[in-house]
């Protein structure tokens, strides 16, 4: 049925998606908060940049990342000069690529969630002696909880489904950078349809169940609040 390499690909995929989601929640939360609150007139520039991976072919993003991170690129070159391994064709490189690739899927739900809270609950908290940081954690985060759930699941699922970026900057190193989507591609190339079926059906069911739980939970939240 599944080979050892398939299990490795599964573990690499889960590791990559979890780490990417974690990083994205950490940088996406302050970014989304700022986007939801700021009245800066050039805010749309940042918003367009963040949305770019939604429309860009993943290969384009992957290509530029490869140029940047490769041994001859500005970042990769600097790292080589410091005696470090360049990031291209490494797991760390994959994480960086995935963070860019899944950024809008985390930032946009969070931004919407923060925007829908409005300024009133924050003003109420201020008149109840809560400092800005205090009211962010005691009011904004709890009220944006459905947004966090959506953001985490979309970020995770979208990273699991990544193909083009991985292919460009990660290559296909088993146990290091080979993820499920690429393992499926490999199986099909080698006409191993049984394994391709197992992995594909597994991903299909997993993704569906994930989305199902998000929509069900958000529905429940809405019913509770109304």
């Amino acid at each position: 049925m599944l080979t050892a390499a398939d299990y490795d690909a599964l573990i690499v995929t889960l590791k990559l998606a979890s780490l990417t989601t974690l990083i994205l929640l950490l940088i996406g939360t302050p970014l989304a908060w700022w986007l939801a609150r700021s009245r800066w007139r050039f805010k749309f520039l940042i918003e367009s940049l963040i949305a770019l991976p939604l429309v860009l072919p993943p290969t384009v993003l992957g290509f530029y990342l490869l140029i940047m991170l490769g041994a001859n690129g500005p970042i990769g070159g600097a790292m080589t000069a410091l005696g470090l391994q360049p990031l291209a064709f490494s797991f760390s490189g994959l994480v960086i690529g995935s963070v860019f690739y899944s950024l809008p899927f985390v930032v946009q739900p969070l931004q919407n969630a923060f925007a829908s809270i409005g300024s009133r609950p924050m003003e109420v908290a201020a008149t109840l002696r809560a400092s800005p940081l205090d009211r962010f954690f005691s009011v904004a985060i709890p009220l944006a909880r459905p947004g966090f759930l959506t953001a985490a699941v979309l970020g995770f699922a979208h990273t699991v489904g990544e193909f083009g970026v991985v292919l460009m900057i990660g290559g296909n190193i088993p146990g290091e950078t080979q993820v499920l989507s690429i393992a499926i591609y490999d199986h099909v190339e080698s006409l191993e349809y049984t394994q391709a079926h197992w992995l594909s059906a597994g991903l299909l069911i997993f993704s569906f169940l994930l989305l199902l739980s998000v929509y069900a939970l958000n529905r429940q939240q809405l019913l509770l609040r109304s």
């Binding site: 009133r120 003003e123 109420v124 201020a126 008149t127 109840l128 809560a130 205090d134």
Partner: peptide, 10 residues
């Protein structure tokens, strides 16, 4: 605002 001893009813 959070340092002003007010009670505010909206």
């Amino acid at each position: 605002p959070h340092q002003r001893p007010v009670g505010y009813v909206f």
